[in-house]
């Protein structure tokens, strides 16, 4: 690939709710995505990781998305949805054998991995879901309000872990947030979405 290929290139991406969305992410860049509820922010993340029907051009380091098998693509451009879903009895059963980050990195006890899922709070689940998606070691991380259920301190821990992951792997991040101060802390650049298009 040429040196000039962006990490993620999105060109004229359209779906049922998106209208010709185009933007680029550089390697190691964290970009915030903001906009009113119903603007299509979550839909954009779902379209990029190819969970909803969509058309347009999406490239990762110059390689077209369609040339990569969908399951592998979703590991390369991984989505953390606003609501996490768990299907095994314990959180640990959803993780690979050697995840890159531990629960302690987000202020959780190590024993939490063997707790019954039903006993976990929404904030604990949200942090575990971030650890689960980072365990895929994605090159693009698509985050849908990853700190919405967290207090200020754990919100900061989450921001720091994402930053640490970016520094370690040179991954790029597209981060939906409603919090202007969070956008100012984590991203150098902000994209604003309204009615299915980028402003």
């Amino acid at each position: 690939m040429t040196q000039s290929s962006p990490r993620l290139l999105v060109r004229k991406l359209s779906s049922a709710v998106l209208h010709e969305v185009s933007f680029e992410l550089a390697a190691g860049e964290i970009v915030c995505l903001r906009g009113p509820s119903g603007a299509g922010k979550s839909r954009l993340l779902r379209a990029i990781c190819d969970l909803d029907e969509n058309h347009g051009e999406v490239r990762l380091d110059g390689t077209s998305r369609e040339s990569i098998e969908a399951p592998r693509w979703r590991r390369l451009a991984a989505l953390l949805p606003a609501e996490s879903t768990w299907w095994e009895d314990t959180p640990g059963a959803h993780f690979p054998r050697h995840p890159p980050y531990s629960p302690q990195d987000l202020g959780l006890g190590a024993a939490i991995l063997s707790q019954p899922m039903a006993r976990l709070s929404s904030g604990e689940r949200q942090r575990l879901a971030l650890l689960r998606v980072l365990a895929l070691e994605p090159r693009v991380v698509l985050l849908d309000e990853p700190t919405s259920n967290l207090d200020a301190e754990n919100g900061r821990r989450t921001e720091l872990l994402v930053r640490r992951h970016v520094d370690a792997t040179n991954a790029s991040v597209l981060w939906i947030t409603h919090d202007a101060s969070q956008a100012a802390r984590v991203g150098r650049r902000t994209l604003t979405m309204d009615a299915g298009t980028l402003a």
Partner: peptide
């Protein structure tokens, strides 16, 4: 009934 779990598994790269 399990559509959320099925999609969650797809998101994590399962075929």
């Amino acid at each position: 009934e399990h559509r959320d779990a099925i999609e969650a598994r797809l998101m994590l790269g399962e075929p």
